[in-house]
Design a protein around this nucleic acid. Structure first.
Lengths: 245, 245
DNA sequence: AGCTCATGTGAACGGCTTTTACATGAGCCG
DNA sequence: CGGCTCATGTAAAAGCCGTTCACATGAGCT
């Protein structure tokens, strides 16, 4: 009856060799399936082929495993946002919107990370490393907002970059957690979450006085790269939303 | 040692008399304290002074209790949003922003409900009654957006009300779940969550072409009520954000 | 070859969820 | 009033999980 476990053991020996990593991977899969709440320490151990007590050699407790995953998640998140931002190329507004799409893409493609980071209820502030990682990710948005704010049309008061960053973050997180994940994604929407967020951001930027109908703006921005005939996903003609019937 | 339980029993008799309600209240308190994930069926039973098996006479399982709470939450939510909207008085934009503040206020003041509704991970779509309640609440925002959209400045394409409603919802939910609750509220922000959301909505509405500097707009809106010298929390002079230094 | 210590095991404790058989007593019926 | 019935409660038990502890194993160093 227990030949399974014995065989497992025979295959890999008494010592696993890479248990910590195996546990992280197992947990990632389980969280993606059943959410951080449904994820079980014992299940991860089973999946790695070790006893229920083994994980305690690598993580103080279940929460520490979760924190480790959230930590990695923030790091990957930061890296993806940074890549999307691409230092503002080919122009600030285009790059800014690409960051928004990257946010949603991450939430969709890495549900386990996203869950651990934002929906697991673990106290980010209680863990300095975690908090720092979270802050580094946010700083990508913040830096992008900074560049954008610097381009504010002359004559109008310049919007605080920090505020813009918080606004953008809240929009992206709102769309992701309400419409882009799990079964909530099944709400019938008139448009895809990506389109929804893109329109939202465009309208917001327009509210700040940024020209958004054509990119790059014909304003004072020095194009770091010759503008390509970009953006198959750019603004549809007639504004950020489809043409009204 | 067990005089406690015996005494409890002596006080209220073998039958509790109102266990279902007592369990709901207990659960509400527990969820507010420890989150939906940390909430325990057994704990609620203990708090109500009954055995661990008693709750099963009133709820199929732990999830059904959670669903009941979410259901009530959506109902109260709807009622509070409806009150805040007040049928668009004294003017549409003012009322619209009041709905935004009511959203945040609900998230802050009823953390247990909000948690059960949006953060407990229970499948809203799987429960028709729950889904319907959720939809009714959203419809308040949707109706408000409808009224607002009808006031779109002439000459510009009229924004779809559904899209506006989804945008506003995502902003409110984003701000609430990132900045307005639990320990995440401790992120040092340059402004309160309420101010943050208010500015976000105002900038967004401006992006749609709505005049937001003074309310009621001097546009075509027929004021249903003589405009009061309202809004101690209205737009500060100089735009939706504070004056830039 | 032998020692040591990181890593893994099994057993055990307490707590939770859920089921089952049984107990209680409130409300109804004659 | 006496007795029946059934909703509502209880205790006990099975199965799972998290966590701890004493003990086993074997990889790597000397």
């Amino acid at each position: 009856m227990s030949w399974r476990k014995e065989q497992r053991r025979a295959e890999r020996g008494y010592h696993h060799g890479n248990l910590k990593e195996a546990l992280l991977q197992a947990a990632l899969g389980l969280i993606a399936e059943k959410g951080a709440a449904g994820f079980t320490f014992a299940d991860a151990a089973r999946m790695a082929g070790v006893s229920a007590a083994a994980p305690y050699r690598h993580f103080r407790d279940r929460d520490e495993l979760l924190s480790s995953i959230a930590q990695r998640g923030f790091e990957q998140f930061e890296s993806r946002l940074t890549a999307a931002w691409d230092d503002g190329r080919p122009d600030t507004v285009t790059a800014f919107e690409r960051v928004g799409r990257a946010y949603l893409a991450f939430a969709r493609e890495e549900p386990a990370f996203y869950n651990a980071m934002f929906e697991s209820g673990l106290p980010v502030d209680a863990n300095p490393a975690l908090q720092a990682a979270s802050e580094r990710a946010f700083n990508v948005i913040r830096a992008a907002a900074e560049r954008l704010a610097a381009l504010a049309p002359p004559g109008t008061p310049r919007p605080p970059a920090m505020m813009m960053a918080l606004h953008i973050w809240s929009m992206a997180h709102g769309v992701a957690s309400l419409f882009s994940r799990g079964d909530a994604a099944r709400r019938k929407l008139p448009m895809s979450p990506d389109e929804l967020l893109e329109a939202e951001v465009l309208i917001y930027l327009r509210g700040l006085g940024f020209p958004t109908d054509r990119r790059p703006a014909k304003s004072a921005e020095p194009p770091p790269v010759p503008p390509e005939a970009s953006s198959g996903s750019g603004v549809p003609p007639g504004g950020p939303w489809g043409k009204p019937k």
